[in-house]
Structure formats: structure tokens, C-alpha cells
Design a protein around this nucleic acid. Structure first.
Lengths: 91, 91, 91, 91
DNA sequence: CTGCCATTTTACCGGC
DNA sequence: GCCGGTAAAATGGCAG
């Protein structure tokens, strides 16, 4: 009854909200840490912009080869061809 | 070479794909046009974020908008946040 | 092989990059945790979208929030949209 | 004076808003057109999901080779190496 | 109806 | 300090 409006519990809501806010503040800390590392690297002579490129490319790189291969299979499947010789024949 | 496998035509596939890509590129053009209008409005002193909010509200069913606003107030009250200018405690 | 060019160390670069990638992966974990909390709240009957709005408001400076709300009303009035329950024309 | 509140012109605002809404409605039309093409393709026996894959991969494909090459140059630049033999020597 | 993916919006960062 | 572009978050739409 107390701390409840229109059928929702203020305590439960507050608990969820505060948990999220705590996690978000931890994220902000990490963001700051990352900035510091960039800053330190910059002070050592590295180019921050290029470092960001490297990190971005490292993230996507592993996918590219697979994607190239996938494209071929995708076309084959689209055209109704088997994509490998072990494909299931009938179920 | 024959552009056909398992009775499915690569030409037909290509045709569909290209039609879609054409439509998608037109969508991108419109997206850019919209950005330009926002940019022009901004240059004239309007607040773009507020404009977006207005446009969103114009799209919404008025009842839904009211319901949503009220739900926000319910949650605010549940958390003890001020919801309107008449709610502050006596001084 | 020597991992060094023009007086800059590849090892140092790698070290910076890996430190950043580690921090970024921790951020991703937190992002997932946040999603889970929202999901749990949703399962308990809360409206996630409204919760997000509440959290945003709690983050904002109250004056800024009020200013923004007022600006929305200004725009609404400029367009002849109803802004409050006392503004409807006489019946 | 008329149609102006708090120093903003309702007419100018309305003009911007309506231009944007018009462009948005055209976008919606295109979205519907795209859906129809997919639907037609599906009716002809194509797998929509796979078609989406194809279109997505065609969009990103041209970038991949360039990105692979870029990664190498990016590392070189990060390590202070010249990325090509014609780089400016001194200015 | 739920989760997933694309789009859209917001916030951030670096350069001018 | 603004502005652009770039990455993150959030919203909405679609398939299963």
C-alpha cells in the first residue's frame, strides 16, 4: 500500500533502476579507463586515430574471409544448388 | 554459363535483387534529404532534437501519447520524483 | 622479426591495443548485464521503455529537463497542438 | 506576431515539419515496395532470408578487400613505416 | 509473443 | 566552442 501507485511497487522499481544505474556507472568508469589508455599511448607517440582504426579492423577482420566464402554458398543456395556434397538427401 | 541451376534462373534472382537495391538506394537518398532539411532548420535556429520529438508526437495516436505520459508520471510518483508543480510538500 | 620500426615498438602498440580490447570486452559484459536487468524487470510487469525514460530523467539536471519540456510546449503551441488540458476551445 | 511564440515562427516550423513528414512518407512507400518485391520473389520460389543475405553481403563485399589492405597499411603507419614508396620525403 | 535484426536516434570525440 | 563524422544505444519491424 505504501510506496505503491497504480499497482506498481515503488520498491521493486527502485531496486531495478538502481541496479541499472550502478552498472551504467561502471560502464562509464571503463570508458574513462579506455580514454586514459589512449591518452597514454598518445603520449608515447602513437596516433590515436590510427589506433582506433586498428582496433576496429581487428574486430571485423575475422569475419571477412568467412563472409567471402559465405557469399558463394549463399548464391548457390539461392539457385537451389547443394552447397556441399554431404548435404542431407531426404528426411 | 547457362545461368540456371536446378530449374531456378539466376537472371530472375538478379532482377529481384537489383530491383530491391534500387529501391533501397532511393530510400537512402530520402534519408539524406531529411537530414538536409533538419540541418537547414537547425541553421535557422530550430532545435533539431525538439523537432524530432514534435514529429514523433504528431505521428502518435493522441490517446497513446497521453497514456504514455501518464505512465511516466506513475513511475515517477512510485519513485518519489516530482511530477508536477503542485506536488511539492508544504514549506 | 625485430618487431620494431622507426624507433617504435610493435610490442608497445600491441600492449596498448590489447589493454583497450580487454576494457571494451568488459563494457560489453556490462551492457549485457543491463539488458538482463531490463529483461527481468519486464518479466515482473514493468514497462522497459518507460523505465528508460525514468533513468534518463534521473540523470538529467532538473533545470535542463524543465527547459526541454517547456521548449517542446513552445513548439507545440507554435504548431497549434494542444499542450495541456486547459487549452481546448470552448464547447 | 501571429503564429509566433517565444520568438519562433510557427509557419517556418510547420514548413520544415511538413517537408520532413512528406519525405518520411515517401520512405514508407519505398519500404512497402521493397516488401512487395520480396513477396513476389517468394511467390516465385526464392528464399527471402537468403535473398536478404545476398543483398547484405553485396553491400559490404566491396569494402572487405580494401579493408584487408588497409589493415596492413594501418599497422605500418602505426609503427611509423612509410606505407608506399612514393611517400613525401621532406617538405 | 518473443527474440532478433535493421534502422534511427543519441552521445561522444577529435579537428578547426 | 561548434561542427562534422563516428560509435553506442534505443526504437521499431519481421520472422519464427
Amino acid at each position: 500500500m505504501m510506496n505503491e501507485f497504480a499497482g506498481i511497487s515503488g520498491d521493486r522499481l527502485r531496486s531495478f533502476v538502481e541496479r541499472i544505474e550502478k552498472l551504467e556507472s561502471e560502464k562509464i568508469t571503463l570508458t574513462e579507463d579506455i580514454k586514459e589508455v589512449f591518452s597514454e599511448a598518445k603520449g608515447t607517440g602513437f596516433d590515436v586515430k590510427i589506433m582506433r582504426e586498428i582496433i576496429k579492423l581487428r574486430k571485423m577482420d575475422p569475419n571477412d574471409a568467412a563472409e567471402q566464402a559465405e557469399l558463394i554458398n549463399v548464391y548457390k543456395r539461392a539457385l537451389g544448388m547443394q552447397t556441399d556434397m554431404f548435404s542431407q538427401a531426404a528426411e
